[in-house]
Design a protein around this nucleic acid. Structure first.
Lengths: 153, 153
DNA sequence: TAGAAGACCATGATTTCCCATGATATCCCA
DNA sequence: TGGGATATCATGGGAAATCATGGTCTTCTA
C-alpha cells in the first residue's frame, strides 16, 4: 500500500529516486505513471493497478455502465498517456520531460501515497492542495479520529 | 503491454522505427497492422492479438451472438486489410503506401499504446484525438480516481 | 536488366547501467 | 538508555549500451 508523502530531487538527467517504501509495494522493478486528466499532476501505481484499471474499463462496458466510445476515450487517455518507468538498482527512474511539464515540476517532486495508487506533485502545488483537502476533511470524522481534545490537524 | 505515445519519422523509403518498448511486447520479429474502420488511423498488435481476434469471431459465431454474415464481414475488414509487417535488425519496418494514405501520414507517425493493441496516427490528428479523449475521461472515474484536483488545472 | 524490396553497416544522440559519496536512519550491545 | 557500528537511502558523475535514423549493398521479381 502506498503511504505517506516524500519530496525528492530531480537531477539534470531527469532522474528521481522512487521513495523506498513505494518500491517495496510494486512487484516488478518499475512503476506506471501517467499525466492526470484531473489536473496538473501525475498519477501512478504498480503493474497491478494498471491491470485493474484495464479490467474495470472492460467490465463496465460489459455490464453497460460505460459506452464503448467512452471506454475507448478512457483507454486512449490512460494507456496512451501512461508509461512504464523502470527504476535502477539504486531505486531511481527517469521522469520524461512531457511528464515534468504536465506537472510543472522543477527540481523537486513530491510523491503522495494514496493506497492502491499515488500521485506526483510539484511541492508548492501539493501544499495548496493539501490545505484544501484538510478543509474538506474537517467535516468528516472517521472511525478512530479524535472526538475531543487537541486541535485536530 | 503496449503503453505510451511515441512519434517517429518516416523516411523516403517509407520506413519507420517501431518503438523499442513495443518490440519487446511482440514475440516474432513483426507486428500486424490494418487500416481502422473507425477512422483515419491504423490499428495493430502482435501475433497474439491477431489470434485472439480470430478466436473471438469464431467463438461468438459458435455461441450465436454473431451471425455468420457479420463474422465474414469482420474477417474481411480485419484480416483482409491487415498485413504482417516484419521489422529488421534495427527495429524498422516499411509502412505500405496504402496505409500511409489511409492515416494521412507525412514524415511522422505517432505510435499509441493501448494495452493489448496499439494505433498509429498522424501526429496532429493524434493530438486532437488525445485532447478529446482526456475531456471525456474526466467524467469517468475509475478505481478511486481523484475527486478534486489541484490548483493548477 | 531495371526497379523495387529487403538485409546489412555506420553514426550521433540519448538512455541506461554501474560505482562512489555523504547523510540519515536503524540496530545492537554494554 | 546511550552511543557507536552498520545498513539503508538519496544523489552525483562517468562509462557503456541502446535507439532512431541515414546510407549502401544485395537479392528477388517483373
Amino acid at each position: 500500500m502506498f503511504l505517506g508523502s516524500t519530496t525528492n530531487t530531480i537531477d539534470a538527467k531527469g532522474r528521481v529516486s522512487v521513495p523506498a517504501p513505494f518500491r517495496d509495494v510494486v512487484s516488478d522493478e518499475a512503476i506506471y505513471v501517467w499525466p492526470s486528466v484531473h489536473g496538473g499532476f501525475l498519477e501512478g501505481g504498480g503493474k497491478a493497478l494498471m491491470e485493474a484499471l484495464q479490467r474495470e474499463i472492460f467490465d463496465r462496458v460489459a455490464e453497460g455502465s460505460l459506452s464503448p466510445e467512452a471506454a475507448e476515450a478512457q483507454q486512449m487517455a490512460l494507456l496512451g498517456g501512461a508509461r512504464r518507468l523502470p527504476y535502477d538498482k539504486t531505486g531511481r527512474m527517469v521522469l520524461p520531460e512531457e511528464f515534468r511539464n504536465h506537472a510543472d515540476l522543477g527540481i523537486n517532486a513530491t510523491f503522495v501515497g494514496l493506497g492502491n495508487r499515488f500521485e506526483i506533485w510539484e511541492p508548492g502545488a501539493h501544499e495548496d492542495r493539501m490545505r484544501a483537502a484538510r478543509e474538506v476533511s474537517k467535516t468528516t470524522r472517521l472511525l478512530g479520529a479524535p472526538r475531543f481534545g487537541g486541535s485536530a490537524v
